[in-house]
Amino acid sequence: MNDYILETRDLTKHYGGVHALEGANFKLRPGEHIAIMGDNGAGKSTFVRQITGVESRTRGEILFDGKPVRFDGPLDAREAGIETVFQTLALADDLDVPDNLFLGREITKWNFLGPFRVLDYKAMRQATLEGLERTAVKIPNIKNSIRNMSGGQRQCVAIARTATFHSKLTIMDEPTAALGVQETAQVENIIRTLKEAGEPLILVSHNMRQVFDLVDRVVVFRRGRICADLDIKAEKITGEDVVSYITGARTQAGFEDAA
């Protein structure tokens, strides 16, 4: 077992002259839940996009599970075990819940038929029900197409998809930004389930209460740099402290070059 499930060294991304991410050194221990916070444009989503292989980095190293990795796309990252719930939900609206959960990795029989191999609907339905139960997601009718579901139900399906496949690392980018109170509660329950199962998580969020409720550590981004790494479970840190790091009123010792 490695000390860190994910580590980035000097991770940097420039879009032309715009330095969206500059020298990010980041570490995630196995089973740890970390929140990434910061103002709009602080580099949170850019950071996530480098890790998940959506974009290729300008400079720096990413070590996943102890080994240096360079993903050519989100698929590579997913095959390596990084599951991501994107801000724009990657669901096919006209398909139902099992179809979406298993999209691109269907359970099939008669595999000699190549692209025309036959779908094992029964097995996928069974696995879907088990996956939903494990993540405590309630969806009344999994045969319903995603189009007919509420935003919260869609989000739950997207998250259940990542949670069903026992990934080594789950990344959620603003999973509750568009949800109502009850739906948010449901998503937060799924996150707690992941924590109990010992699966590590990176949560990008603006919601201070949610962050303090759910995660162990908060990493604050400001203007493309990491400006604070706060162990909120061990140290006495309040929401106001975090806000002052986000706004730039304070910079943690050791991150002075971010100021």
């Binding site: 989100p74 698929l75 997913r78 095959e79 994107f86 724009t88 939900l89 990657a90 669901l91 096919a92 609206d93 006209d94 398909l95 179809d99 999209l103 691109g104 990795r105 269907e106 099939t108 038929l113 692209p115 025309f116 191999r117 036959v118 779908l119």
Partner: peptide
């Protein structure tokens, strides 16, 4: 009943999602 059919529907429904799902 086949993967081919399912992927055809998925691409028409949300091409980005289909790509992200590894199709």
């Amino acid at each position: 009943f086949t993967v081919y059919g399912k992927h055809t529907y998925a691409i028409g429904s949300n091409e980005d999602a289909a790509r992200m799902s590894g199709i």
